[in-house]
Write a protein that binds this DNA or RNA. Structure first.
Lengths: 213, 213, 213, 213
DNA sequence: GATGAATGAGGCTTCATTCAT
DNA sequence: CATGAATGAAGCCTCATTCAT
């Protein structure tokens, strides 16, 4: 989505723009985020932004993809050493905890995820979510398949429903654990670890194989 | 939130304003909805709006509360004749189907719910959601309690988690079933009834009492 | 084309805007004329212009119509006392001389006529010319009919061609007599009266009844 | 008007620039034509254009001269075989028909002529028209002289007026026959051949020698 | 001689809010 | 209490031109 010019830019300039844009969209969302502010904060002429991206949406989509790549990489790294085969739900819990933690430690990723999920304009939302969700879906589906293989998830469960709910819950966890006012029940913003455990327990009850007592 | 002046207004004038404002926010969302348009469509002077509400947000919050009252009332009516005692999950399914249908038939309610859930600006979102969620939580908690009493839900299940997930899922159902691009897996926008059944099945598996075969 | 608000405006304010807009469009034409400049010169907020006219084109079209009404009225006044019946071509010459003189004395009318005729953007040009030409065509056709009735113009001449050429020549006379660089032959900008006489002679030769010697 | 650098350029590079510039100005006109687009389409750096021409106007004026040379050459070729001596007005009609046809078949020439004739900015217009008109005037004057010699035009007619009107009519024919909205009477855009005939008839009546019946 | 990134003024338009009437 | 004209900052985007490489 960025232009060829963008690729040829000095890294410092690119970084300044990305940082400014992330901060602005994080604070205001896409529709209300201002290119004026971004250019000013980045120390760049207003017109320059349009040499790097076709338009406002182009810049935002680029940031969103950056963030989802970053998130995907972080999750992959967290996931690798986990004992998925031996303790699937334990690993899953650790994974979700890491997920929540990632967003706490990377406000830009949180903000962009929020901006994507909370965008009201339908066209914009569809355009951006499509790109972003693709990553998550692929990864989640792999995790679910794995859970079935190791016998943690029932093969006859409604795994698509599981996937859909996971996608929904993941978004919610990321946001609700780090933004006030989104979760009035579980207390995600005060004790996220416990909240994660309770959510995993629900998934285990719904889709897991019966536990041997 | 409305001023004292608003209460003293002829009902016809109030209704015209509410109708115009709902239509506008439904079409454009909160941020992009225009008070100019609302005033014109309502046949009211622009300045008058500011005699009834502190500002744009005040008007919007008022509409949101109206909508949630309306939705609550509709749900209560739907709920009353359902066989909660005899077939809790059947009643629950019918309830969710009615819920989804309500938003399909009341675009204004859908739009306002969307605007509330998708608003990025933290202050706005918190202010509005707080009011709205209160209604839903009370009602949902009653439903859950009832499910326990009739033996459909396990008393030892994590009922708060159930509540939190319900709240999340309800919002999602209302929006995803009626706006494209929000649910890439379950196909809520093409076959909502089936999607509802699958979601209920998940809740039954997670929180329901074991079925006697 | 102006909004209702415009009609209710104090005359002084309206006049200031009209004067500023005419001056700007006169100097720069429609496409390059700047609403910024107009608002500043008129001592009016930029946004106010959009309370009076839908957009830039709306303002321009309004000015064009004003000008063509003004021109039409002036011509009607000039025309009335002329001896059309006794000396059609003499009256016609006097008419054209008055026409040229009008634009010399009313630079705003000249400028708007120029702006209309010289606008490059096809949609704009069509939109505006349609309004303006209607006036001229009706009036010119009446004059031609009259010329036939009094026996000055041959009834079997190609009167539509006469009309088309008249329209073309009138525009040209108005502009070329008052803007340098448009007429490199007849010297319209230096001795317009003589040029007018020569043009009328051409029309007489082409469409007039043979003179009795 | 081009710089010395331009003359030294490989022909291929010059041709690419000319082609791109003609296409762009043809599509957008002078004021709205974009050097960005021209440079991109020509496969040339934006900055290079400024090494070949002083500025945007310089490039445009150069193209205009090119076009008028091209048009002049085409007309000369069309003119040569025509029976000017035997049937002056027949040849003249054929000539004008060819003229109109040329612009239909060469949109770039049409567009440049339009851009020249419709440019409002006085300095620009004068600068460009001067160059262009010189060609036409010389050629038209020769045609008129010839008409007199072969006895088709009256020697005592106002031949300068004829010349001035011809110049005016030629421009009009070229544009009005190929752009909508310029000729509301003769129907030049729907049946140009017939319109041409009618115009020639007017000139014959005004300046031609009486026909022997 | 060629490049193309950077500029920054300027383009039109929208809109919540104020305040004199 | 209603009105609606006025505001002016802010919105996104375009573009001819410059200049360091």
């Amino acid at each position: 989505m960025p232009t060829a010019t963008w690729e040829r830019l000095p890294a410092a300039r690119r970084d300044a723009i990305v940082a400014a844009a992330e901060a602005e969209f994080a604070a205001k969302g896409f529709s209300r985020g201002s290119l004026n502010v971004i250019a000013r904060e980045a120390g760049v002429a207003k017109g320059s932004l349009f040499q790097y991206f076709d338009d406002k949406l182009g810049l935002f989509a680029y940031l969103s993809e950056l963030a989802s790549l970053r998130i995907g990489a972080a999750m992959a790294k967290h996931s690798a050493p986990l004992p998925w085969a031996d303790d699937f739900f334990g690993a899953f819990t650790a994974m979700l905890t890491a997920w929540v933690g990632h967003f706490r430690n990377h406000p830009a990723d949180l903000a962009l995820t929020a901006a994507v999920n909370l965008e009201l304009d339908p066209d914009t939302r569809v355009a951006v979510r499509e790109v972003v969700n693709r990553h998550y879906l692929r990864s989640l589906r792999r995790t679910i398949d794995h859970g079935v293989q190791v016998g943690a998830l029932r093969a006859d469960a409604d795994l698509d429903a599981c996937l859909a709910l996971l996608l929904l819950v993941l978004s919610h966890l990321a946001l609700a654990a780090n933004m006030p006012g989104l979760d009035p029940v579980l207390g995600l913003d005060t004790d996220p670890d416990q909240a994660v455990e309770r959510v995993v327990a629900v998934f285990r009850a719904a889709f897991g194989t019966p536990e041997v007592t």
